[in-house]
């Protein structure tokens, strides 16, 4: 395909969808601010387990980046296993988030109560759904990595980049969200 830009159209499309997803979370966090300023707001601390999950998801960003680097350098084994590690860390993130919701519930902040708590569930839950989408993409990438003969082709490079960039995006999205939630609670 001929393109006026240096960026591949598919990547460009992906970046636009980042803007779109970002707007959705901007909507949610703005709603949080508007509702909070109206008073009748339950005060509580975000359980520290959410910080562990933050570290985990950041680690997975690093591993997928290293996997990509190994892919480019032709280090097949390193590339494959780092990708497996990324998927595992992604999955661990979801488990930790679930654990976080359990802990919230345990300190008496349930889903149904004051919107102050419901927002934490809603925002982290909708984010988790986006992470699941990323895990799906990595699963497809894993399938390719283990079933196709190793070869660095432009198409596979592009696919990898799309997957990795989406993954970095949902990771940093979470960093924004956790910073927001901690500052507001």
């Amino acid at each position: 395909m001929r393109s006026n830009n240096k960026i591949h159209p598919k990547k460009f499309g992906l970046y636009i969808s980042f803007a779109s997803i970002m707007m959705m979370f901007t909507g949610l966090t703005s709603a949080h601010i508007v509702r909070q300023s109206a008073g009748n707001w339950l005060e509580f601390k975000i359980p520290p387990i959410f910080f562990i999950s933050t570290v985990v998801i950041l680690l997975s960003s690093a591993t997928i980046h290293l996997s990509y680097k190994s892919f480019l350098k032709g280090r097949e084994q390193q590339y494959k296993w780092l990708m497996v590690l990324s998927a595992v860390l992604g999955f661990a993130f979801i488990v930790l988030q679930y654990e976080g919701w359990q802990q919230l519930n345990a300190i008496g902040v349930d889903l149904k109560g004051n919107p102050s708590g419901s927002f934490v569930y809603a925002i982290s839950g909708i984010h988790a759904a986006h992470v699941l989408g990323g895990i799906g993409a990595i699963a497809v990438a894993l399938l390719h990595a283990f079933s196709l003969p190793f070869k660095v082709t432009p198409v596979r490079k592009l696919r990898f980049e799309l997957t990795a960039q989406y993954w970095h995006f949902v990771d940093f999205l979470w960093v924004y969200l956790i910073v927001f939630l901690v500052m507001q609670h």
């Binding site: 779109s20 707007m23 959705m24 909507g27």
Partner: peptide
């Protein structure tokens, strides 16, 4: 559309 529809979805 790309910037406003997602906010509707959050609602």
């Amino acid at each position: 559309g790309i910037l406003s529809f997602p906010v509707l979805v959050s609602g």
